[in-house]
């Protein structure tokens, strides 16, 4: 169930190797799952794989690739760009022969336009940045350092910025400031309220919720039946 997937280099060869969690039994429906980002990735990891187990039981293959620069990646996160992640998502879709996509939270910004599927609780770039910058200003204030969101974003745009321990490059921050998710044809938004419980990314500590995993799985299983 754990494998790797390769990002090809321009002109041939392999530019990078990233981790992949998948349930692949060569079935007709093959769902690319693009994970939540950064702190939310940790909080939603178990939930995401729990949804995959439900899809597997219902006869749906699913593929959860790590984005370059995340988790065990050999590539530095600071070098990643929004455009680079979009390309990685396209490459992942092609290499797994995905038929559908489930983009979780900020990954709605990356979902390949050619795939039908779902955005679960889509998060915009500005809201993602606002939350992360705010966490930094609050932590700074506790430490007796004065930083404002505007100052931090100005530094971020020119030099990059470390937010909650994640070092984001200048190009990534600049792109996120205006990045809004759009629903491509054949894609549907799934609001958190459809899962009948609070979003697990909100929680201060990672948790799980079997009922919510059932609900998200059921929406996809029903649509692909």
């Amino acid at each position: 169930m754990s494998f790797t997937w390769n990002i090809p280099a321009l002109g041939g060869g392999i530019a990078g190797e990233e981790l992949l969690v998948s349930f692949d039994r060569q079935r007709q429906s093959r769902l690319l799952i693009l994970p939540a980002w950064f702190d939310e990735a940790n909080k939603l990891r178990r939930f995401t794989v729990e949804v995959m187990r439900r899809l597997d039981s219902a006869g749906i293959d699913s593929f959860l690739p790590d984005l370059p620069g995340c988790n065990e990646s050999l590539t530095p996160l600071a070098d990643q760009t929004l455009e680079g992640w979009r390309k990685a998502a396209d490459i992942a879709a092609a290499s797994f022969a995905a038929t559908h996509v489930l983009a979780i939270r900020a990954s709605a910004l990356l979902a390949p336009a050619s795939l039908p599927g779902w955005h679960y609780a889509a998060q915009s770039g500005p809201k993602l940045l606002r939350g992360m910058v705010r966490a930094r200003t609050i932590a700074a204030r506790e430490a007796g350092i004065s930083e404002t969101s505007d100052e931090l974003l100005a530094i971020g745009r020119s030099e990059g910025l470390t937010l909650s321990g994640w070092h984001l490059g200048a190009a990534m921050i600049a792109a996120l400031e205006t990045a809004e998710p759009t629903l491509a044809p054949g894609r549907h938004g799934i609001a958190q309220s459809e899962l009948a419980g609070p979003g697990l990314w909100l929680r201060a500590e990672p948790a799980e919720d079997a009922a919510q995993a059932d609900a998200l799985g059921a929406i996809i299983i029903e649509a692909l039946a």
């Binding site: 702190d39 809201k127 606002r130 939350g131 992360m132 705010r134 966490a135 930094r136 609050i138 932590a139 506790e142 909650s164 990314w201 909100l202 201060a204 500590e205």
Partner: peptide, 14 residues
């Protein structure tokens, strides 16, 4: 104890 700076940021954004 759960309410650290990250959680406070999440709470305010929500």
């Amino acid at each position: 104890p759960e309410l650290d700076s990250m959680a406070v940021a999440g709470l305010l954004t929500e």
